[in-house]
Amino acid sequence: MLELIKIESYKIAAKPRSYIGFAAIFAIVVLIQIALFADGQAYLDFLIQSLNQSFQIEGMGFNGNMVGFIILQTLIIQMPLLVALVSGDAISGEIQGGTIRSLLTKPVSRSRIVWAKFIAAELYTFLLILWLGILAWLGSLLFFGNGDLVVLKSDSLVIVRAADTVWRFLAAFGVAFLSLSVVVALSFLLSAFSENSIAPIIITMSIILLFTIIGTFDIPIFNAVKPFLFTTHMIIWRNFFDRPLPLTQIAASVGILIVHITAFLSVTLIYFNRKDITQ
């Protein structure tokens, strides 16, 4: 199994498109950091001006934790695309290229092949999150310094003390990884059904886009649907920066994400095991 994972990881590493994600994250993070370095304080002052009229706000300096958080919530919309780019063609790419037949002649079960591909895609996702964490959070801490984190919501503000941010960021990255694993599992499912390598990537992104748009609108009919959309639970990482910590909500969302991963992967395994590969 380990050998299979190594082979699948090598396949991912050999594709130029696998590096698009790392390059895109680098470019976006550096751009946001430069922009916030230039205008971050003015941006923050503008956002909290209504509170500034009532209080003398001490210590509200722009810092690495704030920059890291802003980047994280900006990038979380784009990350699924970067993940789907690689995981979306894991199976369909082999079908389209015709390499699937030689792969299936190997003395390993189809389930093991799917598992190896999934684990390799997960490793890729992990590295992508790690890259994001190093650049967006640790890099920002290095350039902007440490300090209290201001979590800005549309109708409220949460101040998280600097000493209290490390575990919250680590937990947030952990849940972000779990969220992206749903995208990996979904694109795997679509990849198993498709014989075209691009279609699963586009369909995965379309689904995420559609669900995100539904989540953005504050319309009663959409509000009724929101709890059933996995994208609603994908942004649960933000709740690690709430106080008091909504543990029940986090646990429920984590559970829902795991159920999605299990369901998508199970259907993929069942379908791929029965798939008639003739080409």
């Binding site: 009532s54 919309i77 919501k153 109708d155 995100t212 953005t216």
Partner: peptide
């Protein structure tokens, strides 16, 4: 102290999926 109501556009707060109470 009298406070002003705190309100930031969702897009500026990147606070998608939040339905204010």
């Amino acid at each position: 102290v009298d406070m002003n109501k705190f309100k930031v556009p969702k897009a500026m707060a990147v606070d998608i999926n939040n339905t204010p109470k």
